[in-house]
Design a protein around this nucleic acid. Structure first.
Length: 370
DNA sequence: GCCACCGGTGGC
DNA sequence: GCCACCGGTGGC
């Protein structure tokens, strides 16, 4: 069983405190795999809901998604209330129609599979991995005893369980299809006129795309790239109680040990964004989208959730309102499954984090990236 | 007209 | 000082 997996469809059980004891023991004692049937089942569920969404948006669909009211409309409480009730009514109708369509025809092609590998062919890290595979230079180190590394080291403090939302590599001139991500460290590099990588502040209105996710091994402190956003979110949700280790990489990249070089390093000219640990997995059918702000402003990034009907939510208050408007959502989801905590750049840690005695990772990355 | 992006601000 | 919330606005 995948030690990092929890079921996002069961709201109450998503709390790490209530689920991880058995998982942790199992994860430490067995050779873990991220290709578990549970993971596939979660992916299938998400895909099914994505299908529903795609169907509801298809040309000729009985009722296309309704846009939320404009800002000016929201200013008027009466009008805003009318809009919300109307939107809720329309959305309930769409859900009913989608259910009817699902019963009457086979599912359409998947709109988006959260478990789909996110970096090939864009990420240079993926290319590097493929090169190593084709060259036969994959480490020949023996597969370690799973207990060998993890049990001999005490659990790290919470603040040290930093995931790295990977690192993003290029400008996003297209839509931010893969920009959602809750990564922990995100790296973005910029190219100058000569095509060289630089650390220049990007021009305004350019978007970053998060196309790689990485997690730090709690044993060797090396970064391991996670093959999909779904797996990344599973690891992130449980990482406090199930510390990540290189041995878990076996599920998608065999024969990796703590003796192998890090998959990525912070000195490669990319921008890293540090995610908070224990952020809940994005509910199936929903999308958690992170938009990095382009300049050194008052904020580093924005977090949005996009509901299955396409409504964009910017805060917990808006999630609450969405639940009020859509009882179908409230019936299967809880507010605790949402988090608007934004990733932090390693060079701009919070003041409270600077004085924490365990913030070596922050400080080190901060120094190198600047 | 819409919306992505940015910044102001009030609560903690 | 931090951050959740949301209003303003410029670009499309």
């Amino acid at each position: 069983m995948d030690p990092f997996v929890s079921d996002p469809t069961e709201p109450v059980k998503t709390s790490p405190q209530t689920q991880t004891q058995g998982q942790e023991e199992e994860g430490l004692g067995a050779d873990p795999s991220f290709n578990s049937s549970y993971t596939e089942s979660v992916g299938a569920t998400a895909a099914t809901q994505a299908d529903d969404e795609a169907e509801s948006r298809a040309p000729g669909s009985p009722s296309p998604p309704r846009r939320p009211p404009s800002i000016s409309s929201r200013r008027d409480p009466i009008r805003a209330g009318c809009f919300r009730r109307l939107a809720a009514s329309c959305e309930a109708a769409r859900i009913r129609e989608a259910a009817l369509l699902r019963e009457s025809k086979p599912p359409a092609a998947k709109a988006e599979d959260p478990d789909e590998p996110i970096w090939p062919p864009k990420s240079p890290h993926w290319r590097r991995y493929v090169e190593l595979q084709t060259m036969g230079s994959s480490p020949s180190n023996p597969v370690p005893n799973p207990d060998e590394n993890s049990l001999s080291h005490p659990p790290r403090k919470e603040s040290q369980y930093m995931l790295a939302d990977k690192v993003v590599g290029q400008w996003d001139d297209s839509d931010t299809e893969n920009s959602s991500g809750s990564a922990s460290y995100q790296i973005v590099y910029y190219k100058n006129a000569q095509g060289e990588n630089t650390f220049l502040v990007p021009p305004k209105k350019r978007k970053f795309t998060i196309d790689t996710y990485a997690v730090e091994c709690s044993t060797c402190q090396k970064w391991r790239i996670i093959p999909s956003k779904l797996k990344y979110e599973q690891i992130r949700e449980n990482i406090i109680h199930v510390p990540f280790s290189c041995k878990y990489v076996h599920g998608w990249k065999p024969e990796v040990t703590c003796h192998d070089p890090t998959d990525i390093s912070e000195g490669n000219g990319m921008v890293w964004a540090i995610d908070k640990p224990a952020i809940p997995q994005t509910p199936p059918g929903w999308e958690r989208k992170i938009t990095l702000r382009s300049e050194q402003g008052t904020r580093f990034a924005d977090v949005y959730y996009i509901c299955p009907a396409g409504r964009k939510l910017r805060s917990m208050k808006e999630v609450e309102r969405c639940f009020e408007d859509n009882p179908d959502y409230a019936a299967v989801l809880q507010l605790s499954q949402f988090s608007f905590k934004v990733p932090k750049p390693p060079n701009r840690p919070r003041q409270s984090e600077l004085i924490e005695p365990t913030e070596g990772i922050y400080a080190q990355l901060l120094t190198r990236l600047l």
